[in-house]
């Protein structure tokens, strides 16, 4: 019994029942499959998170973002600048208490280098309803290449608790088909 010492003193020499042995082997092989699925996806899959990241200060990051807004702003909405950068461009999104700034307008089927960083606390970038979720840290600038494949209006929800205004921290992103201007 499990609550008494093993009856057989040399329990480690007991034979293992076949069914147990088979299950151990199956489970081990399944572990290998799951492990190599991740490796496989790195080679052939399209959704892999970038490893590109830099240390940065809040001042540097907001300067870069403002430069982009200056260059590519096309209109304003609810007090937010809307920027429409060209394909392949570096685009910046600021997370801060409690907003995502500015509003990005992208084109379907084109790639952009999206930068993410926080100016204050940790936040959670959650693009809805696409459902891409990335942790956003202060002092770290993460860069990933994204390629929108659906058009419309997207919400950016904050899903890392960041104080009392956390649930009001919402941003927006637009994806338009061929141009939009």
């Amino acid at each position: 019994m499990s609550v008494t010492p093993p009856k057989e003193r040399i329990w480690w020499n007991e034979p293992v029942p076949k069914s147990e042995l088979a299950w151990v082997i199956i489970a081990f092989v399944w572990g290998l499959v799951m492990f190599f699925a991740m490796v496989f996806w790195h080679m052939y899959g399209e959704q892999n998170l970038s490893n590109e990241a830099y240390r940065i200060t809040a001042e540097q990051y907001s300067a870069k973002t403002e430069a982009m807004v200056e260059k590519y702003q096309v209109r304003e909405e609810s007090g937010y600048p809307v920027v429409h950068p060209p394909e392949g461009e570096d685009i910046y999104l600021i997370a801060r208490l409690w907003q995502w700034w500015p509003i990005l307008e992208l084109e379907k089927g084109k790639s952009y280098r999206l930068h993410l960083s926080s100016l204050d606390w940790m936040h959670g970038f959650s693009l809805q309803p696409v459902n891409i979720n990335v942790q956003v840290h202060p002092d770290y600038e993460m860069v990933m290449t994204i390629k929108p494949t659906t058009t419309g209006e997207f919400g950016i929800v904050c899903n890392e608790y960041c104080g009392i205004g956390h649930h009001q921290m919402l941003g927006r992103m637009y994806v338009v088909d061929n141009g939009g201007s």
Binding site: Y80, Q99, P129, G155, H167, Q168
Partner: peptide
């Protein structure tokens, strides 16, 4: 969660946000 609803979040209807987003 598969529909993107965030954890630790008081109000996903976000009635008083500047840029509200509607969950399904």
């Amino acid at each position: 969660g598969t529909l993107g609803v965030p954890r630790r979040h008081w109000d996903i209807s976000q009635a008083d946000a500047v840029l509200p987003y509607d969950f399904p």
